[in-house]
Design a protein around this nucleic acid. Structure first.
Lengths: 276, 276
DNA sequence: CGAACGGTTGACACGGGTCAAGTCCGGTGG
DNA sequence: CCACCGGACTTGACCCGTGTCAACCGTTCG
């Protein structure tokens, strides 16, 4: 059973069934045409499922397919030979798991399912098709990719320069915003299917210290994290502690910008022909 | 005067003049045809220069152009409002400074010149042209982008899970490998145009602790870093300390892979026509 | 000739790691 | 039905790596 369904399951499920999370995400960047919507719907023809804790890709594996998460959560990690592990990335519905798979030969990371997952599979052919036949969608995918890099970069800022409490605060605000974007959270509660150890590995601290730091946030009634989900009680304060500044998420890339992008693309003969 | 020219200047200069560093870098991924080589040469028509410590892009600035470094070094940083700063990335000749500039509206980072710099400027038009008319080069650029993300990800592993000494060791091995790739280093010495403070900000430690940690490495005769450059005296040991594993650099993406990529692309009508 | 900046080091304080001991819960086998 | 087990969760005590503060040197530049 999908962890996400354990609670508030009906609501979240319903929304997820309604539209592919990817569609919701891309629609922030791009007001999609009917043909674009249909294009995305057709991608669902090829899906793959994974169970909780399944290793989707291992370090050193040959790469090939791109996975877009329809349902469930995953993480990417690297492990040093003495066992220290860093989680470099946590993905949720709508996120693209390994955008560069078609270009890279081997994976340098592990990719693991945090919950039962359903993924849309893209091979190189489909990707090329998107970029040539649906340049709008192509631009939107590039936007996702740019965003991912920016999120990664901000995580580096966290781990490099924020204290444990600040990092946690930042993480919760970020994950909350990202869930909101694909309609996985409203109100002040949401589910977070990661263990304490996984979160510690993502934050670059030990579990012991994770508990200490969470206590600090819980004591002040800012946040609560049980087994049944997270509740953010004082979002303003959490923002303040995290020194959270939203621009790095690049959620305000307005369509006019995209239009300009598409207009320029259409001046290139190949794209002009491919555009309809 | 370019810092890189201060020492061994003649040699490095000569090589740099010979070929655009980007060309050397891409040739690792792709054996370039004459038309591809000429295409890159023509990009040099549009260049821009910056002086040491010039702010190339500031947090919040509108993005537009892509800069490819011809000569010089740059870094990307984020500063929290209380002054803490994290350098997220250090770029050298052949690196692409802000690949996603045409897609993103605003920059979330500062980009600063570490030395006097000469950059090749790419606007959206050229980029689209590359992807449509020279899919081989397009794939190679995507490879650069994939690599950048992987390097960023490994830096997160460093800052999250490696000790200060290990981080430093890892940084030196990485930067050495990257310089080698574009012929900026041979033998065991190379120039590193960063201040102690900048390196500390890149490693996520304080300058004071940087000194402490460097002392450890210098005491054991593993490395030396004066004002005139870095000397790696015991590369094996440095590797060992860093727990350096090369795959994340993705330097072994063999051409056969690229050929497969191009073959598939050529099955898409638009690309087939664009491929000449 | 002083100011500003990069480099360098010592002394001390504190955040976060390590070790160790438990609790709680769900699953499994007798 | 209970006993046992493993895995996730939780906390206290202690210690070490890293941050903080402060001082100083050498160079460059106005």
């Amino acid at each position: 059973m999908l962890v996400l369904q354990m609670q508030d399951g009906e609501i979240q499920d319903e929304i997820l069934e309604m539209t592919h999370a990817l569609k919701r995400k891309l629609s922030v960047f791009l007001s999609m045409s009917d043909s674009e919507e249909r294009f995305i719907d057709r991608l669902d023809a090829r899906t793959e499922s994974f169970g909780k804790n399944d290793q989707i890709v291992s370090e050193g594996d040959a790469y090939s397919k791109i996975y877009v998460i329809k349902k469930g959560w995953t993480y990417h990690s690297r492990t040093l030979d003495d066992g220290r592990r860093q989680i470099t990335r946590i993905d949720l519905p709508g996120d693209i798991c390994c955008f560069f798979a078609p270009i890279l030969k081997y994976s340098a990371n592990n990719i693991v399912a945090l919950t039962d997952c359903e993924m849309t599979v893209l091979e190189l052919e489909q990707l090329a098709e998107i970029y040539t036949e649906q340049p709008g969608l192509g631009a939107a995918l590039s936007w996702c990719c740019a965003q991912d890099e920016s999120v990664l970069s901000e995580r580096l800022v966290s781990v490099g320069r924020r204290s444990a409490v600040e990092r946690l605060a930042h993480f919760f605000v970020e994950i909350r915003r990202r869930m909101e974007l694909v309609d996985l959270a409203e109100g002040n509660r949401f589910l977070l299917p990661v263990t304490r150890e996984q979160l510690a590995d993502a934050m670059g601290i030990t579990t012991v210290h994770l508990f200490r730091s969470m206590r600090r946030l819980e004591k002040d009634q800012i946040i609560a994290w049980g087994t049944d989900g997270v509740a953010i009680n004082d979002m303003m304060e959490l923002h303040r502690i995290a020194k959270f500044t939203e621009p790095y998420l690049h959620y305000t890339e307005i369509p006019s910008r995209t239009d300009r992008f598409l207009k320029k693309l259409s001046q290139i003969p190949q794209y002009a022909s491919g555009q309809q």
